[in-house]
């Protein structure tokens, strides 16, 4: 049927399906950096988004303020007793900080995994199609942001930087489905013990984060706090992730899986901080690098 193959539209359709598959395959590949035309387009739309999100932010802020005013009385009642405790807490924190610094001096270890420098950023966009939970923020490489940095709000961890352009960056939320998105975390169990596990995936039905690979004999209870462990070397230590809601045995019963409620609201996000690690001294980095290389050689 020569006529069938001469149909121009059919050829265009077939060629575009091939290109479609190739493009999807290209963009799903794990990429260290997005290509420069993508970066350019993202930055250009970033300018427009910045310009438009300014006024909307202002209006939304105003509405929020009015709503806050309505609850002022009850909030005040609740906060007054806490205020009394604050002074003593502050004094204790000061003392502990000093203690900590002195002890570090004695041990000779200056850096901690928990040290980071927060970079303030404003959310200027969110993916409308909601399959990929991405945010766009108005800070980029020029402000020191790099891929894989932790993104937090005042209430805890919300995600990581997926990729950074010069003036904007894309943030991947904890709730997005990505099998490569793993965070080393620790549950603060009783008696100051830490139970380690991995944050891996999001249960869409329960709307809860999943923490897997918890040892089967660890005693994990509801309501315990979960923080980042800092062992991955990418995220700083001690960022609040959430609270345990439910614990169950994983498949085969060798490990446990905990379901966490995130501390931060993953929907109502306007201002975020990007945690730039400052503590990674050259020594630690070399050590990490060498262990990684060893592991690769073993494989």
């Amino acid at each position: 049927m020569p006529q069938f193959f001469l149909n121009k539209r059919l050829i265009i359709l077939l060629v575009s399906i091939i290109v479609l598959v190739a493009l999807i395959g290209f963009s799903l590949r794990e990429r260290e950096k997005v290509t420069w035309p993508e970066q350019f387009l993202k930055d250009m739309t970033g300018f427009v988004q910045n310009a438009l999100s300014g006024p909307t932010n202002y209006i939304a802020g105003f509405i929020e303020n009015v709503q806050d005013l309505q609850n002022t009385y009850s909030e005040n009642q609740e906060l007054k007793p806490r205020l009394d405790k604050l002074a003593s807490l502050e004094a204790e924190v000061q003392r502990l900080k000093k203690d900590n610094a002195e002890l570090r001096d004695i041990v000779g270890k200056e850096d901690a995994l928990s040290q980071y420098e927060p970079i303030q950023a404003t959310v200027i966009g969110r993916n409308p199609d909601r399959y990929h939970e991405n945010l766009i923020i108005n800070r980029g490489e020029n402000d020191g942001i790099q891929a894989d940095m932790a993104v937090i709000t005042a209430n805890g961890l919300i995600g990581k930087v997926k990729n950074a352009q010069s003036f904007t960056s894309t943030v991947q939320l904890l709730s997005s489905m990505d099998p490569t998105n793993r965070i080393s975390a620790a549950i603060q169990a009783e008696d100051n013990k830490k139970v380690f596990g991995l944050i891996e995936g999001y249960d869409k039905d329960k709307k809860l984060l999943m923490m897997t690979k918890i040892p089967y004999d660890a005693e994990v209870k509801e309501g315990q706090n979960v923080i980042s462990s800092g062992l991955g070397g990418v995220f700083p230590e001690g960022l609040i992730i959430g609270k345990v809601v439910e614990v169950e045995n994983a498949e085969y019963g060798l490990t446990q899986t905990a379901y966490l409620e995130t501390g931060a609201d993953l929907y109502d996000i306007n201002h975020v901080m990007v945690a730039k690690i400052t503590s990674m001294s050259a020594e630690i980095q070399e050590e990490l690098q060498s262990t990684l290389e060893e592991e690769e050689e073993e494989e």
Partner: peptide, 17 residues
């Protein structure tokens, strides 16, 4: 469609086509 894919979803192709 191309802008949507690059800026929002990060998977190029779906909306472009």
């Amino acid at each position: 469609g191309l802008l949507f894919d690059i800026v929002y979803t990060g998977v190029i192709g779906i909306y472009l086509f």
